[in-house]
């Protein structure tokens, strides 16, 4: 069902690498907007998983990043751009279980190689682009109709 909104609803968040304490803020804001709009529970669940994993990847791997979302009557578009090391082999990074996270991050229960697969699994369109030494950009779209 298309949303009855006149203008797209947007959100923009700065994410600082290493700042685990604020993880989930962008996802939580997006979730609340979607709840207010009475979006279907399953779509909210998928959008939340995809956004949170994207936030975590910036926190774990990058110096900083930005997450933007746009809710249109028919779609949720999420874009995450980071200033990080970049991903050398995207195909390998997309493999469930593959991770380059350091030991201390794994001890927290992150870095199990599920982040990128979770993002892909929970979005309808998933695009990833990465440049070594510059950063990674991910675009995800979830259809509302």
């Amino acid at each position: 069902m298309a949303l009855d909104i006149e203008n797209p609803i947007e959100g923009s968040f700065q994410i600082i690498g290493g700042n685990f304490d604020n993880a989930g803020e962008a996802s939580s804001q997006l979730k609340n907007r979607l709840l207010e709009l009475n979006v279907n529970d399953d779509i909210i669940r998928r959008a939340t998983i995809a956004t949170f994993e994207a936030e975590m990847n910036v926190i774990i791997y990058a110096a900083a990043g930005r997450l933007n979302f746009v809710i249109t009557p028919t779609q949720i578009q999420i874009r995450i751009e980071d200033m990080g090391p970049g991903i050398e082999n995207i195909e390998q990074a997309m493999t469930e279980g593959y991770s380059t996270a350091p030991e201390w991050v794994r001890a927290m229960g992150w870095g199990a190689g599920m982040g990128l697969p979770n993002m892909k699994k929970n979005s309808d369109v998933f695009k990833i682009d990465s440049v070594i030494g510059e950063g990674t950009t991910i675009e995800m779209t979830l259809n509302l109709t």
Binding site: F20, A23, I49, G109, W110, G115, N118
Partner: peptide
């Protein structure tokens, strides 16, 4: 990420993790 991806609303989560996330 496993909990994020696979747990369902209304479930109780049993864990040894105690950090902010």
């Amino acid at each position: 990420s496993d909990v994020m991806g696979n747990s369902k609303a209304g479930e109780i989560w049993i864990t040894l993790q105690t950090h902010m996330n």
